[in-house]
């Protein structure tokens, strides 16, 4: 244990407005939701922020519901909540799959979707699923609220469009109103309690409306735009042949920019991206 509890303050405001008011002070507050990222940094003596604000008690940030043409999910929704929700299973099946493949029970009971997004790790598991569901994120501050397209949320390694005075309050994905095919596969360091080495998520709606996202192969989770375009046109033309798959896979591999790190190598990530992409595309041929 290398963190010092005395070196940090932590407050638990009673409601969202009080939390936002504290953030508006601009004193460098760090938000603490389920703590499964923040407390790990604390344990290792790497938590630099002196002031912390707990939001775990803000029940207004919980809840999964359909609102108009969207499924909205509160920022404090845990992996367990996602797995147990029939609405998520119906409207965001890749998100449910991703939640099931995350960590293990105790972490899933505490880790939140808001924390997973805000933590902005390129190896996070929910983001690739959120990307293929056309997710939007609602950011709120004392001065107002805004919806941002999640595809533009991450701007670089661990950087986002979120301002220091803002909180993620919820996310939303469009309801599934037409048959959708989807694919999710995470390759981790082992079969449970594992951080991703490569993650691929994909969805195809209305026959040729395609989303493909990669995790762990670039500084942020990314949409594979070129692959999406090529796959969409191949599907639209009814021409997704094995040859087309090979061509698109090659484009996809070029789109990924994996690196070497302590968990794996760029070479491995590149080859697995290739193989998984092929497996993913072949599943859409069938």
């Amino acid at each position: 244990m290398r963190g010092d509890a005395h070196a940090h303050t932590l407050v638990a405001p009673a409601d969202l407005d009080s939390a936002l008011a504290l953030l508006a002070d601009n004193k460098g507050h760090r938000v603490l939701a389920g703590g499964t990222d923040v407390m790990v940094a604390f344990e290792r003596g790497l938590l630099r922020d002196a002031r912390l604000i707990s939001i775990w008690q803000l029940d207004e940030l919980r809840g999964i519901a359909t609102v108009g043409r969207h499924l909205t999910i509160g920022a404090l929704t845990t992996y367990t909540d996602l797995i147990e929700s029939s609405l998520v299973a119906e409207h965001a099946p890749t998100l449910a799959a991703a939640a099931r493949d995350t960590a293990a029970v105790a972490i899933r009971n505490r880790g939140t979707i808001g924390g997973n997004i805000a933590n902005a790790s390129p190896a996070a598991d929910l983001p690739p699923a959120l990307l293929v569901h056309d997710c939007e994120v609602e950011l709120r501050s004392a001065s107002g609220a805004r919806w941002v397209d999640y595809a533009g949320f991450h701007t670089g390694y661990k950087t986002t469009v979120m301002r220091p005075d803002e909180l993620i309050v919820r996310v939303r994905v469009p309801l599934v109103d037409a048959p959708m095919r989807h694919f999710y596969r995470k390759v981790g360091t082992r079969r449970a309690q594992a951080i991703s080495k490569v993650c691929i998520s994909a969805s195809v709606r209305r026959g040729h409306d395609v989303r493909i996202a990669f995790g762990s192969v670039a500084p942020t989770v990314v949409r594979a735009r070129i692959v999406e375009r090529e796959l969409a046109s191949a599907l639209a033309a009814g021409l997704l042949s094995t040859e087309a798959v090979s061509r698109i896979v090659a484009l996809g591999v070029a789109e990924a920019r994996p690196i070497d790190d302590i968990r794996s190598t760029a070479e491995y990530r590149g080859r697995v991206t290739r193989n998984l992409l092929r497996e993913c595309l072949m599943s859409f041929v069938a």
């Binding site: 790990v40 360091t189 082992r190 079969r191 449970a192 594992a194 951080i195 302590i262 968990r263």
Partner: peptide
Amino acid sequence: MANGQFTNYIVPTSVD
């Protein structure tokens, strides 16, 4: 040892 942490020194879990 650069991976001196449970999170990246990988031992088998109950599902492995």
